[in-house]
Design a protein around this nucleic acid. Structure first.
Lengths: 248, 248
DNA sequence: CCTGAAATATGTAGTAGCGACATTAACTGA
DNA sequence: TCAGTTAATGTCGCTACTACATATTTCAGG
């Protein structure tokens, strides 16, 4: 932005700078009631064709970063209105051997059951558990790890976990979700007490059937409170000290 | 990263993508024992020549992002080995009117007394308090705000605040620093109890002279513990709930 | 129809840590 | 030596977290 010698003309200064490709890559998290998963695709172009990689694409001339990340996500999964948050930028000169590329990453939280129906079949995509990731393209391994860190932080301070669940979910489901995110186990009683204390949850009259003998009540998110809560911070289950002590 | 039609050749696919300039802009925080400040420079090129802006520069062909941010910081301030952490990427198509530019931002924590001696005089630079910022270039206002948010988060979970202070500092100095970062006031007794409990601080025999009647003991950072602590999280003074409640 | 198994729902007691608060100690300068 | 200023430290009450046990609902099988 700054030039110590003002006599150089503007255009020259701008023109002599190197330009890069800008890619947007999304770490798409999903939850199948058991484990936290990441959606990967088999790369369709050389080099490294058929290597598993994150869903991504290039920035187009007239779109902003968030906009581009949303567009790409929609193109590849058919999903719209997905929780999407920027994580970081990666720009090692050697990361993409063909062309200098800076990648800006986003993590997405999707509800797996929404996803299943809309996915285009052209695309070889698969869910992977975090401890069963295949060999990944370029630096995507690091990127996934960083995104997980970010998700863990975010979900412990803001009420966003439910974005990974269907509209209606039970407390045991919610607990399993958080246990998957942090790879810890929680006490049922303390868990429900703490989550209910947020006042973000609305109990419905409906019970889940078939999964357990007794059946658990479904809850939904109180959107009005949640929207105002997005700005505010709440420390959920993982207080920073306990968290680092307990995480595997 | 992915192409639904594998018949398109690799090079064509890469070549037809638009390229951008990539800028690295740093929010340089400093602390003058009173307030948290940001170092800004007067832009030397059109458009918006003479508008105050963040310190920044362009990414060069053979350097990574962190590397570039460090290089630029060194070129502009003479400072080396500075705490520097990536914050976010900004890429609205209109943000730089001359040329499509993606900016990747970093926050830097420097010790103002180190800085004073090394600064090149070619450069019109000035410290600004956060509540007395001038009109800023492009979206730099937003960028500063986001960086402050990030600094607040980081300093409340990791022991990094001291990067803004000299090698040796007193507890009252440290307290004033945290008060400046969060724009709150702390209780002296609770503050020192909590900070000392981290075990990151080493008390020296030396006392600060001249500033107060009694004189406060100098402390330094126990680097061995600190290095291992960088990975771990610690919740410092600002617990998330209390923090959001108390912050102005 | 009764019984047992399985999972949900909820209550309590102990404790650690936080916040609020007041006094003593060290030094300077008049 | 006295007054003024700032540093250093200890106590109490409360909140919130943890650990832990029992009752309830329902389904399935004899």
């Amino acid at each position: 932005m700054l030039n110590l010698n003002p006599s150089i003309t503007l255009l020259k200064l701008y023109k002599e700078q190197t330009k890069c490709l800008v890619a947007l890559d999304s770490i798409i998290f999903g939850f199948d009631n058991e484990a936290l998963k990441v959606l990967l695709v088999k790369r369709g172009i050389e080099p490294n064709i058929k290597t598993w990689s994150l869903m991504g694409g290039w920035l187009q001339p007239n779109e902003g970063l968030d906009e581009a990340a949303n567009r790409i996500l929609k193109e590849l999964t058919g999903l719209d209105n997905v929780y999407l948050e920027q994580v970081a930028a990666y720009g090692n000169p050697e990361r993409d051997p063909v062309e200098r590329t800076v990648s800006i990453t986003y993590f997405a939280l999707i509800n797996v059951s929404d996803y299943g129906t809309n996915i285009s079949d052209d695309l070889e995509a698969k869910w992977f558990g975090l401890d069963e990731l295949p060999e990944l393209l370029f630096d995507h391994q690091t990127i996934v790890f960083d995104a997980l860190q970010r998700l863990r932080y975010k979900a412990s301070h803001h009420f966003i976990g439910f974005e990974l669940l269907p509209e209606k979910f039970t407390l045991p489901q919610l607990q399993k979700l958080y246990e998957a995110i942090y790879d810890v186990e929680f006490d049922k009683r303390n868990f429900s007490r703490k989550l209910l204390a947020t006042n973000f949850l609305l109990k419905t009259e409906e019970k889940q059937r078939g999964y357990s003998k007794k059946g658990a009540y479904y809850y939904s998110v109180d959107k009005s409170k949640y929207d105002s809560g997005k700005a505010t911070e709440h420390s959920f289950l993982i207080t920073t000290n306990a968290g680092s002590a307990t995480l595997k």
